[in-house]
Design a protein around this nucleic acid. Structure first.
Length: 107
DNA sequence: GATATGACCGCAA
DNA sequence: TTTGCGGCCATAT
């Protein structure tokens, strides 16, 4: 028989990790993947977030790339919303980047 | 089945 | 500092 996922799927584990990022903190794709038990699968995190519905309450905006930059196209509405929500949480940008040494979250 | 693509990452130069 | 390259892996064609 076609087995339904007995445990949480990869995507569901990623959602759980992202949901656990505290306000005012950011996490990189690679770190999210690792915390989700998927080392070296940063790209999968990006893919999962790109497929989130607009109404999702997941704090996806707290996930940035390893350089502290937003990975969405800068001109996209998503990127602008992401930056706005981050600044609302007190996260500051320095020359277009977030200082991960200060705002990064390790779990 | 093979190839191309993507909200990535780490390292070497 | 930036750039290039290999690695990673689910989806789409």
């Amino acid at each position: 028989m076609t087995a339904e996922p007995a445990q949480l799927s990869d995507a569901e584990r990623i959602w759980q990790v992202v949901a656990g990022i505290p306000p005012g903190r950011v996490c990189t794709y690679g770190t999210v993947a690792e915390l989700a038990g998927l080392p070296r699968r940063a790209r999968m995190v990006g893919r999962v977030l790109s497929r989130l519905p607009e109404g999702s309450r997941l704090p996806w905006h707290r996930v940035v790339n390893a350089r502290g930059e937003l990975s969405l196209p800068a001109d996209s509405p998503g990127a602008q919303m992401q930056r706005e929500r981050l600044e609302d949480e007190g996260i500051g940008f320095v020359r277009g980047r977030i200082p991960l040494t200060r705002f990064g979250w390790q779990g």
